[in-house]
Design a protein around this nucleic acid. Structure first.
Lengths: 158, 158
DNA sequence: AGTGCGTATGATATAACGTATCAACCCCAT
DNA sequence: ATGGGGTTGATACGTTATATCATACGCACT
C-alpha cells in the first residue's frame, strides 16, 4: 500500500473489474452470483466506502430488489464469506474488497475524520495476534485488525 | 500469557484486586468511582467474560441501580475510557481489563465454542497495523485486534 | 415425468445494540 | 451564595441484526 491509497481516484474501473473478478471466481467455485448479490457488490464498489446494511438495503429497495433486512444481510453474508467484501467490526459496516486477487488477511485503516477506509494485507501469523495465539495455544480462524485514526489528508488539520 | 489463560481458576481475588486497583487509580487521577461504575466493573470482573450492555443492565436493574440503557452505557464508557474495561468489537460486548497494571494495547482471543475471551498485551506499533499505518501515512489512535477461533480446550473437540 | 434435495428468496416479527435530549441534582471552588 | 462541571434520571428514538416459517427454483436421480 502507498500513500495513494487514501487519495481520490477514478474508480469506474474498480467497479467493472471488481464485478468481473467476482463473477469469474464464482464460476470457478460453483457459487451463484445472483442478481442481488452482484448488485450489492456493485453498490459497495461504486460507493467505495464502508456502508451500513440498511444503507445498502435502501438502494436495493429503490431498485425493487428487496426491501427487508434479510435481503441485504444474506447478500452481505455471501460476499463476506467468499472474500468479495469485508465487514468492518468497528463500524458495523461493510466494504468491497480491494484485493480480490490475493489471499486474505486484511488490515483496515479507518479515518475518523473523513470516514475513508483503506484495506491493506498482512499475514496475521507474523504479527501480535499470531504471537499471542501461539502462546495461548489458540487456533485463529479469523483475525480482526482495524486501526482508527487520521488519514494523511486529515491528520494535518487536526 | 500462558496456556493457563484459558483455564478455569478461582477469581474471587480478581474481583477484589480489580476493584481495589481501579479505585486507587481513580483516586490518583481524580476520577469519580461512583457506585454504578464500581458495580458494573464488579459485574464484569465476577462474570469474567464478555457481556452485552443489556445483560449488565439487567443486573443493575435487579439491584435497583438503574434500569435504562444509558445507565449501563455511561458506566461502560467511563470504564473503557479509563482502561478498566474493554469493548470487544467483534461481539458488541464488554469485558473487564485483566491487565490493569500495564500500558494498554490489548489483543483479544475469542473462543467461538466456549465464548471465553482472553486478553493479551502487545505493542501495536510493532505489528502489521503499525507497518500498514506507517506505509500509508496514517495516524493510529486506536487499534482493534481480535482473533476469533478455538481455545486450547475446545480445539481438540473440533 | 415424478421425487427429493440443496440453495436461494420472500415476508413478518422481534431481538439486540446504541444514542439524543432535557431536566434535576450535587459537589465544590470562586 | 452562586455558578459551573460532572453525574444521574427518565423518556424516546434510532440503528443493527437475527429467528422463523413459507415459498420457489434448479438439478440430479430414478
Amino acid at each position: 500500500m502507498t500513500n495513494q491509497a487514501f487519495e481520490a481516484h477514478d474508480h469506474r474501473s474498480c467497479i467493472a473489474e471488481g464485478v468481473a473478478s467476482a463473477a469469474q471466481i464464482c464460476t470457478e467455485r460453483n457459487l451463484q452470483f445472483t442478481k442481488t448479490r452482484q448488485r450489492v457488490l456493485e453498490i459497495l464498489l461504486s460507493e467505495h466506502r464502508a456502508m451500513g446494511a440498511y444503507e445498502i438495503l435502501e438502494q436495493l429497495r429503490a431498485e425493487g430488489l428487496g426491501s427487508q433486512p434479510p435481503v441485504a444481510y444474506r447478500a452481505l453474508e455471501f460476499l463476506t464469506k467468499n472474500g468479495f467484501a469485508h465487514r468492518i467490526e468497528r463500524l458495523n459496516a461493510f466494504i468491497a474488497c480491494s484485493h480480490l486477487d490475493n489471499a486474505h488477511a486484511p488490515v483496515f485503516l479507518i479515518c475518523r475524520s473523513c470516514d475513508r477506509v483503506v484495506e491493506a494485507e498482512a499475514d496475521p501469523a507474523q504479527g501480535e495476534i499470531g504471537r499471542a495465539a501461539r502462546q495461548a495455544g489458540f487456533v485463529v480462524e479469523r483475525a480482526v485488525r482495524e486501526a482508527e485514526g487520521l488519514c494523511p489528508a486529515c491528520a494535518p488539520a487536526a
